[in-house]
Design a protein around this nucleic acid. Structure first.
Lengths: 277, 277
DNA sequence: TAACAACTGTTGCGATATTAACAACACGCC
DNA sequence: GGCGTGTTGTTAATATCGCAACAGTTGTTA
């Protein structure tokens, strides 16, 4: 309890454990004038939109706060905010009594044993890969769902330079201390959450990369490594040509698989990292 | 209740509302062998770290899940996971019964009226700016804390091209449907969450921008617009030179202020947008 | 002005989360 | 083998959340 209360960073006077204006005259905290329109039409002064705006702003600043605290901050009852958020805001979400930026991509997931093994495998593979990274390294981190495990497994103390072109990777890497982050920009591709452009390919040539961690959708002993999106191919190839050493980071379920876009033969990698080794 | 349950995307057979192995033989779900070390030292097989790894992986995939579901997925009791998370994981956080990636930057915030007014002002200014955007526009969105309000205020139906170089803007824009997102890459600057590079400046020249929304830390009637970070200056200037129309988007508290880095005279903007107009 | 609709606040109840305390088990050590 | 330590599961007590129904207020409409 204390942990969460502390997180909010504000104190409520010990006496009043109830809602802001409990029992007293309702809506005394605001000027309470200037007309009110209906919500169904987007015209006139829209109180709900205004509240959500202020709430969005609050959340943008503090990351997360309790619904009751938010209600107090906006001088409305928690029930009102609850109703506002229930209308389905594009940005905000109410989860377990806390207001936060929507984060689940809504991707449905099944907890069938199979998938769970995959996840554990990816995490293990990420740990294995992280063990190869040394202090001071400049590493390239590819796109995909396995790479976040690599970043999570990297000790925070390491002083690194991370080169990436995927949004999820950049977000994680940007939060690391002692980390220089270089991102390749360009047009956003939602399927892989990557940014691709001609200029980025040019810029890549100026970067010294000690170790490149490449992802793949499949690795076939004869056909080599392949991925689902054709547009990733030039980047992967350019990085591999540029980097001192390239590692293929996949979980073992990818072995023997084949995806539409081939980008490298199997022997192009210094090593193939899976959860086993 | 249903809303949250649905979010998790899995069903538990109606009969058992309790913990996984409730009442039955304890720890029957796992092989339960292979030795167990102590946690204080990081050596030997570390069950807690392993669980957290798998949990991190799960969270990375689904964004958020209920603690009870996570416990079931990892075949441990929710109490164990609760204890694991209480040790203070760097990535994960337990909030209101849901496990998620840590998001609060831990920035302390005060709820003094002043700040709250600022937030409301920024939200209002964002709405005003959003009203200028038309379907099919290519817009540039600068960095700063005001810009998210602009994005939040843009109707989802609009078909847009968004050009940006700030991580927070990119994250929001990437979630919009019907939106082409182009990001300028480069080296990450934590103070403003922006990416800057020579190549990006080159790439900028090839982009057609109808409307540019520029932020500033201050606007002085004689000295012009200024910001806190010098490295933003070239980008702002290049964008303004490139764009058909440039708008300065600030809240009124910035009026009359002066920051270290000047980047444009006041009359360089087609219009200055504040919460009033 | 009266009637109506929309919005907000309050209350109460059921469901859920949180914590502490206790019991059961596995491992390492002597 | 016996013992102690550390880890995990269970239970119960408490606090909090989520929802629904109701009541009061405000602004709009006839």
């Amino acid at each position: 309890m204390q942990r969460i209360r502390r997180q909010a960073g504000l104190e409520i006077e010990p006496g009043s454990r109830t809602e802001p204006g409990a029992g007293v005259t309702p809506r005394s905290g605001e000027p309470a004038g200037q007309g009110r329109g209906r919500l169904s039409r987007g015209v006139s002064t829209d109180r709900r939109g205004e509240r959500l705006d202020r709430l969005r702003a609050l959340v943008a600043r503090v990351g997360t706060l309790r619904l009751t605290d938010a209600a107090q901050a906006l001088s409305v009852s928690s029930m009102t905010l609850r109703r506002d958020l229930a209308t389905g805001d594009a940005v905000l979400e109410l989860l377990g009594g806390h207001v936060m930026a929507r984060q689940g991509k809504g991707s449905p997931y099944s907890l069938a044993g199979e998938e769970d093994v995959h996840v554990a495998a990816k995490a293990a593979a990420g740990r294995q890969a992280a063990a190869l990274v040394e202090d001071g390294d400049a590493i390239f981190v590819d796109c995909g769902t396995t790479m976040p495990h690599l970043l999570a497994a990297l000790p925070t103390e390491l002083e690194l330079t991370v080169v990436c072109y995927a949004l999820n990777v950049a977000t994680l890497a940007s939060r690391r201390p002692h980390t220089r982050l270089f991102m390749l920009g360009g047009l956003f591709h939602p399927s892989s959450a990557t940014f691709l452009s001609e200029e980025a390919m040019e810029g890549l040539k100026r970067l010294g990369i000690a170790k490149a961690f490449i992802s793949a959708g499949g690795l076939h002993p004869e056909r080599g490594a392949s991925c689902a999106n054709f547009n990733e191919v030039p980047v992967k190839q350019a990085v591999m040509a540029q980097a001192m050493r390239s590692f293929l980071l996949i979980d073992s379920s990818k072995l023997g698989q084949v995806k539409p876009a081939f980008f490298a033969p199997a022997d192009a990698f210094k090593r193939v990292i899976t959860e086993q080794g």
